[in-house]
Each structure stands twice: as structure tokens, then as C-alpha cells.
Simulated assay, not measured.
Amino acid sequence: MRVSRLLAFLAFLPALALAQTAMSPAAAPGPAAAAVLPRDLSVLGMFLAADWVVQAVMVGLVVASVLTWTVFLAKSLELAAAQRRQTQALAAIDNAPSLDAAPANDLVAAALAERQLSVDNDNDRDGLKERIASRLERLEAATGRRMLKGTGVLATIGATAPFVGLFGTVWGIMNSFIGISKSQTTNLAVVAPGIAEALLATALGLAAAIPAVVIYNHFSRRIAAYRALVGDTSAAVLRLVSRDLGKSGAK
């Protein structure tokens, strides 16, 4: 009898284990089990899985980055061409014997125009030089303003892009915590994809802001150098004016 009872108990053990496994909560499908499924955590995958607000932030930051590099390319070509022309003009004006023999240039044209308007004031040489200097000074300022066009957007992007990216991050993390509350689980697999999508917005914000700041400072130095070159050209024109007035006074 005892042997038969022992055999019956051993035969019952597999059925008991199977029943306990079926009743275990870990075997029941739930949010945590579904969360461990693999997700596409590439940049494109995180963008497509992100909330529409975070997607809008990312698109805006990408557009800002493209705009930054477009301004960099266009302004670099413009500055290079302007500096080359101004260097050539300065060399030609320095070698010119008189204002009339100087090459065509905005500064030379302004000096000739003022001299023509003051043709009846032969005895007002100092006044003529002051008026020409005033014209040249205004042209220098206008040239500097023209070269600065387009660089203001770089300063704006550099100052605001990190905060825009931070807004996208805060919004994405807020959605992640809402997802935690709804899923009733603290499994890291539930939280990680949403946080990664949110942090991608911050990364894009920094990727847009850092080049914008560096490029803006680069252009500030180059434009200052160009304005100094224009100032040298203006001084060369004034020397020609003074030389011509000295010749006419000697006659």
C-alpha cells in the first residue's frame, strides 16, 4: 500500500508543477512582457515613434541647422569675393596719381560727386575734405550693415535652439511618465524608448546651436577685418583728395 501511494504521489507531481506555472503572474501577458519586445532605436525610428510635438521640434531644429549651413556657405562666398575686390581697389587707389585717375569704386565715386557739387567753393578746401570724409564714413557704415545681413539669424539660432530642444525633451519625458502611469509598471524597457526619443530633441538642439554660434563668431571677425579694409580704402581716397587740393592750391 505504501509503495502504491508513493508511486501515485510521484505521478501527481508533474501535473502539480504545470498547474503552478499556469497560475504564476509572470506567465500572464502584461505591459512589462510586451515592453521587452525590441524597438527600433535608430534616429529615424525614434523620430517616427515620437509624439507629434517632439517631431515638430525636431523638424524645426533640422531646418534651423540647414539654414545655418546655407548662410555659412553663401556668406563665405560673398565675403571672399568682397575682400578680393576691396584689396584690388585699395592697391589701385594707392598707386593712382590723382582722384580722377583712380579706378571706379563706390568710395571714389562719392568723392568725385562731392567735389563736383562743391566746384563753386574753391576756397573751402577744408570744408570739402570734411564733406568727402562724411560721405565716405557713411559708405563704410552701409558696407558693414550690408555684410552683416544674414548673420543675425545665426545669433538667433545659437541662442534659442538649445531651449527649443529642451522643450521637446521635457515634453517627451512628460509623455514617458504618463505612459508609466497608464501601464502600471516601472520596467525600464517601458521608459527607455520614450526618454531616448526625448533626449534626441536635446541632441538636435545642440547640433543646431553649436555650429551657429561658432559660425557667427567667425563671421564677426571676418566682417570686422573687411570693414577695416574698407576704412583703409577710404583713407586712400582722402589722401588722393588732399593731394589734388594741394596741387590746385599750388597753382
Rank of each mutant, 00 (worst) to 15 (best):
I132K: 09
I132N: 09
I132P: 10
I132D: 11
I132T: 13
I132S: 08
A133M: 10
A133N: 14
A133K: 10
A133P: 06
A133W: 05
S134R: 11
R135M: 14
R135Q: 15
L136W: 13
L136E: 11
E137C: 11
E137V: 12
R138N: 13
R138K: 14
R138W: 11
R138P: 02
L139H: 13
L139D: 12
L139C: 07
E140S: 15
E140K: 13
A141T: 15
A141N: 13
A142H: 08
A142R: 14
T143N: 13
T143R: 13
T143M: 12
T143F: 09
G144Y: 10
G144I: 08
G144D: 15
R145D: 15
R145W: 15
R146L: 14
R146F: 14
M147Y: 12
M147L: 15
L148S: 12
L148E: 09
K149I: 13
K149E: 11
T151E: 03
G152S: 13
G152I: 07
G152N: 08
V153Q: 04
V153C: 03
L154E: 02
L154G: 01
A155Q: 00
A155F: 00
A155G: 11
A155R: 00
A155M: 00
T156A: 12
T156P: 00
T156I: 04
I157H: 02
I157W: 01
I157Y: 02
I157F: 01
I157N: 01
I157M: 03
G158I: 01
G158Q: 03
G158S: 05
G158T: 01
A159T: 02
A159L: 01
T160D: 00
T160P: 00
A161K: 04
A161H: 05
A161M: 05
A161D: 07
P162E: 06
P162N: 04
P162G: 03
P162F: 05
P162V: 04
F163S: 04
F163L: 09
V164Y: 02
V164T: 06
V164E: 02
V164G: 03
V164H: 02
G165A: 05
G165F: 06
F167W: 06
F167K: 07
F167L: 12
F167E: 11
F167Y: 14
F167M: 11
G168L: 08
T169E: 08
T169D: 10
V170Y: 06
W171V: 14
W171R: 10
W171I: 14
W171T: 11
G172H: 08
G172F: 12
I173L: 04
I173Y: 05
I173W: 04
M174S: 12
M174P: 06
M174D: 10
M174R: 10
N175T: 07
N175E: 08
N175Y: 01
F177G: 01
F177K: 00
I178G: 13
I178S: 12
I178M: 12
G179P: 01
G179V: 00
G179Y: 00
I180R: 00
S181V: 01
K182L: 12
S183T: 06
S183A: 15
S183M: 05
S183V: 03
S183N: 11
S183G: 12
S183K: 03
Q184N: 14
Q184E: 14
Q184R: 07
